[in-house]
Design a protein around this nucleic acid. Structure first.
Lengths: 329, 329
DNA sequence: CTGAAAGCGCTTACAG
DNA sequence: CTGAAAGCGCTTACAG
């Protein structure tokens, strides 16, 4: 039986729909006898009444949904954790988070129209068309993208460059001067790659180190072996590698092993993310972690600020990164 | 300006809302002059008209949304891929997939009421209350859970036991007879653990091998070292390990290395999932893969079948698993 | 203290 | 070929 309505509850408890609505929504300032309230609530429970969100949304013009649009790159445990925390944070404010894996060429339009979200959290860029249309529909957009569009609230841009700088700083402190960068081959990662690599280059420049040698490394041992040979042949030879992320770093480690070399003795390696496999690598992988919880909290606060209209944006989370020193560098 | 309505389009193009609706929805059987159709469509575009999903849902009682509820366990790349494929498949039928990370203690109720989905895909079990309520609301439930509730369409139950059997079969074929099982410590994985471990036990029994020795291994080297010592001290000593998944297998490999032992010479190891790090391990990890695309296709077909009412359930995907033989076993 | 009524935006019999 | 009207379920001024 799809559909117990407020009218059913009203009939069952002998009051009007108005009263049902007042009681169930805890409307302040309306004096309704405790007995009536009780009766209505019991009837609602007995009947298994659930208000229609569609009707509610139609009436009020807004839902309690936050749409989180994931970008077109591999998600991984970091984003997963971020989304989890975001859900927790927003749930406390009565907002439900729905995630859309924005892969493929499908337009977002159908989706956000279908859910009428209060806000959209974009964990990556999306089409300007979509963005404009959402704005027009009064949907708040909270974006981590780097560009600060017209009216867009730029928020907690994860400073990719900072990650690269941290890698270099750690390596330089350990006495390395000739660095390489192991870039991923997945084209979807290009935005992040550019940010992190720029950080690496800039930090090298600031420290007076030579330009890092860049090579692509996919998640195969042979690929890493090729890159390592190239790096070892450079003059002066590379002694340390910044990897785009832990998986790429794992590949470099595997390549090292295949060549009979050892980290950090022959070549030091540092990754990014601290995935579970990082501490299990041989040698255990030194890596840069991201303070995901802090970022999630900030993201949640930004969403709330966007909804509370002119509330000020929360300050960005402090240094959200840290180096976990293990054995590989 | 939130809200261009069909009335605006009607006014702009000089027709009634009825006609607007007919034209924009491509209603068959109604003869509307091409000129009018054209005019309406242009007006809609010019005004940037977007039909209100809330109104539509209220009217028709159903949306084009499929809610995918993720369970309370760590997601990982396998589920991620599954969801991606599911989205692609269903998008082709005009259905949008929304994912909810069903973690934490929050009830699902608010959520599914808020989106009024056509169907809910449950990648894990959920509370009987929620399930009953959804049924009553006319929402189709497609579940991969093992129990076949009243009226629930059980679907593509991923045969966890089969995974365990494959692991044992591979190890036995390589000449191992005394096996161990490396179980994860995350309590959220207990359902899967039980299924896989039962498969391991049953296959051992069927093959006439002794009971496998079970120990918990978390994602730390020390934990794996302890387990390995226990296994090596058993009589007869363990010569091969089935790991719950690749991450646990990686931990066992790390433990082996810490003890100065080698796989598969001293102890063979086989995982499950074929995560990217598996092929990068030293030695490269032998593992069981799941044919995710086939499972996603089947899941999508099941959803479609559930919506098309009495359409027959698609046949379950064939043997959806395979052993990827690398160096560790 | 409580109810009748309007209206959110849409679709769809039903009349012309 | 096209329009007036009803109704999906809700909330909320406005009257009593």
């Amino acid at each position: 039986m799809p559909g117990v309505t407020s009218a059913d509850v009203a009939r069952e408890s002998g009051v009007s729909r108005t009263t049902v609505s007042y009681v169930l929504n805890g409307k302040e300032g309306v004096a309704i006898s405790p007995a009536t309230r009780q009766r209505v609530r019991e009837a609602a429970v007995r009947l298994g009444y659930a208000p229609s969100a569609a009707a509610r949304t139609l009436r009020s013009g807004r839902s309690d949904l936050v749409l989180c649009v994931l970008p077109n790159w591999p998600i991984g445990p970091v984003i997963e954790t971020l989304v989890d925390h975001l859900e927790d944070e927003l749930a406390e404010r009565g907002l439900s988070v729905l995630v859309h894996h924005g892969r493929g060429p499908r337009p977002l339009a159908e989706l956000w129209r279908a859910v009428t979200p209060r806000a959209v959290v974009a964990l990556g860029p999306f089409a300007p068309d979509d963005e404009l249309a959402m704005r027009q529909a009064g949907i708040q957009i909270v974006s981590t993208a780097t560009e600060d569009g017209p009216g867009r609230r730029r928020v907690s841009t994860v400073p990719q460059g900072h990650i690269g700088r941290l890698q270099v700083r750690h390596l330089a402190a350990a006495g390395h001067s000739r660095l390489a960068y192991a870039a991923p081959t997945d084209p979807r990662l290009v935005d992040f790659l550019e940010g992190r690599l720029a950080g690496v280059r800039n930090e090298c420049a600031d420290l007076g180190l030579p330009e890092p040698v860049v090579a692509e490394v996919d998640l195969e041992v042979t690929s890493a072996v090729h890159a390592l040979q190239e790096w070892r042949d450079a003059t002066p030879a590379v002694t340390a590698v910044c990897a785009y992320n832990d998986e790429v770093a794992l590949a470099v480690l595997a390549g090292l092993h295949a060549l009979g070399l050892r980290a950090p003795h022959d070549v030091a390696v540092i990754g990014v993310d601290d995935i579970p496999a990082a501490r299990l690598a041989v040698p255990a992988l030194t890596t840069v972690t991201q303070a995901i919880e802090a970022q999630a909290r900030h993201l949640a606060a930004s969403v709330l600020a966007a909804l509370d209209q002119e509330a000020p944006l929360p300050p960005p989370p402090g240094d959200a990164h840290d180096v976990v020193v293990r054995d590989s560098a």
